[in-house]
Design a protein around this nucleic acid. Structure first.
Lengths: 220, 220
DNA sequence: AATTTTATTAAAAACTTATAAATATAAAGG
DNA sequence: CCTTTATATTTATAAGTTTTTAATAAAATT
């Protein structure tokens, strides 16, 4: 049975959602204590999160960012119909989908189903040359060697792999790694690329990330 | 589901477009904040952009150039019927297509579909004589030789190829490469052309870029 | 032949990326 | 609560490219 977390301050709505999900055969859990929420969310080890974007003090968006730093569990944002710009923001900062209040129960269930199906089928293990990339473990395996990658490293590798054979601009990578380009130094990316390269080299993959000066990087 | 960004200051029109696209099974997102727009556009990682050419302060054309510097995501310009010259300009500066206001919904959807299909299937590889041009790799391949081109070189080649068999004026090329013609020396173009020619020569293509004194260049 | 336009070349300038080392921040463990 | 460890970010510096400028040569036009 799949576990779904409900993060919603409107208790009535939360209860309503819980019943809806229960009837649909899920295992819904309402999270109320918004203080320690990020820790709890991860501990729950849920399959999906329903997250209200308009939480009291702590903005729902911040919470989403917190979650995304630590996990890539699917998140559906619950937004108000009138604040349309929020949709944009929530999607851009890593939500998988959103619904507007008042919501249509059928549509919500369909979206949940769609996302769960998608995220469960997505293979966490991709191969590249003689190397296996395990995103859920954030590591690469090659013959006998196992190299653990950091968050940034695995994200970069993932993005390059997604666009294998194409030049990806530094801006593109940066916007994939960080929420806002303005807050991290441009050179941070260079350093991260450098580290990723040296880890790939350990595993025998030298010069697989080429620099295209003025244009970006390309994974051959 | 394919994501389409709507960049339009006329809120009514934007909403109209959004509903049209939603009904057609796309995931439309209206971008309103025109300040940080280029950054947001990249973050969204959309499949296509609908861009109004007549944005308030910030000209839509400038925005298109900004986008093109960082990404080659397909762009459809939304233009007014009366300013026909704009169509020419927008196409020349990198848009994939355009529609005129008032627009025909069916035609718009068809064009979107066509472009998405094309950009998804179309390998970035164009052929010219015995040479393959790979824009996404910014390189040309000929038999066994692979020559990497710089940003200026690939842009010039691309532009010449787009207008193959036609004379393109130096001014045209310059406005394609640089924001404002007045800031780069006229001779810079000459040098760039010279470098492109020598790279093409390596690959066996001699005298393919002809000079038409007083008029421009032509790719035979 | 003189003028204008374009080519070529070499050097300077501007810019982009790499690397190493230092600092900051966060997570983990006692 | 403090210390250790891991990771992320910044700084500083070096190295490398591309682009531009400038000077000169070549070609075409009048």
């Amino acid at each position: 049975m799949q576990k779904i977390l409900i993060v919603e301050d409107d208790k009535l709505l939360a209860q309503e959602l819980k019943e809806l999900l229960e009837n649909a055969g899920y295992q819904p859990i309402i999270l109320e204590n918004f203080q320690e929420i990020t820790k709890n969310i991860l501990k729950q080890n849920a399959d999906l999160i329903l997250l209200d974007i308009n939480l009291p003090n702590n903005n729902g968006q911040l919470l989403l960012k917190e979650i995304r730093k630590k996990s890539n569990i699917p998140v559906i944002m619950v937004t108000s119909r009138d604040t349309e710009t929020d949709e944009v923001i929530s999607m851009s900062s890593g939500a998988d989908d959103y619904i507007t209040k008042p919501y249509n129960p059928t549509i919500l269930l369909l979206r949940i189903e769609a996302i769960l199906k998608r995220t469960q089928n997505e293979p966490q293990k991709i191969e590249y040359k003689n190397m296996k990339i395990d995103k859920s473990k954030s590591q690469i395996i090659c013959e006998d060697k196992v190299i653990v990658l950091s968050r940034n490293e695995i994200l970069m590798l993932e993005y390059l792999l997604k666009n294998q054979g194409k030049i990806v601009s530094r801006e593109e990578i940066m916007s994939y790694l960080w929420e806002s380009e303005e807050f991290v130094d441009d050179n941070t990316l260079t350093v991260n690329i450098s580290r990723l390269r040296s880890k790939l080299e350990i595993v025998g993959l030298k010069n697989v990330i080429e620099t295209r000066r003025g244009q970006g990087y390309i994974l051959v």
